[in-house]
């Protein structure tokens, strides 16, 4: 029983990371049909913002030394700032271009951010000890769960609730949902496009920062490529969930986390290295089963 509980917690904590990542991608896709490949690099940037630039092997922790009540808003602001900046400098000029062009532009932007970090910090992974006491285990129903796992899950759920509230109850949220549903129509009805899009980017950047904080606490490492893997899974989750559907993205994020964890538990040792192959096969199967995602938003219905 406790073992099953342990697996449930493992799955939930991995799923929370994927869900937060997926939400960051889905928000922007919703308002401007942009698949933002720079999202993972935004995460890495947030992590490195805690360090002073240096190519030495040992990390010079800078902002990372701030107390939590200052550090968390600081990193969130960095994420939001970078994200909004990329909208102003780059993506604004790509409104109304085709999705492929925007996607490649976002990839190129991510490439620039990554190599910029590489120049400043070198490719060597750096270590940061952030709140290591969060690694201590707590007992829940007989299972010993690291506190960080619990915090990850709770944070993810809190963010999801807060975002739902924001989208459902505030004017901004209403505008954003309207924009996600039908951007042209929303604009005609008086939704200010630039403001909504900027807001979406700011939120998405903050989500990237949140994922970055959790990742860095969990791994203790700052690595240039650290956002990449989560971003890919998040990207897949967004599509499986139904592009443009925020609840869908979150659900699919948790689903992929659960599948990956369960595979690791049930597969025999020889097959375990093929774990991800099974996950990707499941992705293809899901897409064949529901080409528009599990939760298809109304706007995605093809008229043919």
């Amino acid at each position: 029983m406790t073992e099953i509980l342990q697996v449930v917690f493992d799955a939930l904590s991995l799923g929370s990371l994927y869900a937060l990542g997926a939400l960051g991608i889905a928000l922007i896709f919703g308002v401007m049909r942009l698949v933002n490949f720079a999202h993972g690099d935004t995460m890495a940037f947030c992590v490195f913002a805690m360090l002073w630039p240096s190519v030495d092997a040992a990390a010079i922790v800078f902002a990372g030394n701030l107390p939590a009540w200052l550090l968390i808003p600081f990193i969130l602001a960095v994420g939001a700032g970078l994200s909004v900046l990329s909208e102003i400098i780059v993506f604004r000029r790509f409104r109304n271009t085709n999705p492929a062009t925007m996607m490649i532009a976002s990839f190129a932007l991510g490439f620039v951010i990554r190599y910029f970090l590489l120049m400043l910090y070198s490719s060597r992974p750096k270590s940061i000890d952030l709140w290591s006491n969060l690694g201590l285990p707590v007992e829940i129903l007989g299972a010993r769960i690291p506190l960080l796992q619990v915090i990850t899950i709770v944070t993810a759920i809190a963010i999801l609730i807060a975002l739902t509230f924001f989208l459902k109850r505030t004017r901004f949220g209403l505008e954003m949902r309207a924009a996600a549903e039908n951007f042209t129509m929303a604009r005609m009805l008086g939704v200010r496009a630039n403001r909504v899009i900027m807001l979406a980017f700011a939120l998405s950047g903050m989500l990237a920062a949140a994922v970055a904080l959790i990742l860095v606490t969990q791994t203790g490492t700052a690595d240039i490529q650290m956002g990449g893997n989560i971003m890919l899974i998040a990207f897949i989750a967004t599509v499986i969930g139904g592009l443009g559907s925020l609840p869908g993205a979150v659900f699919a994020g948790f689903l992929i986390g659960a599948i990956a964890t369960v595979m690791q538990v049930v597969l025999p040792p020889e097959a375990r290295p093929f774990r991800d192959a099974f996950v990707y096969a499941a992705v293809i199967a899901t897409l064949i089963w529901r080409p528009n995602g599990i939760f298809m938003p109304k706007s995605a219905k093809q008229r043919v």
């Binding site: 897949i236 192959a277 990707y280 897409l287 528009n292």
Partner: peptide, 14 residues
């Protein structure tokens, strides 16, 4: 559309 793109990506990863 994008579903095909993701499916091809899954194929690459596979």
């Amino acid at each position: 559309g994008i579903a095909a793109s993701i499916a091809t990506f899954a194929m690459l990863a596979l």
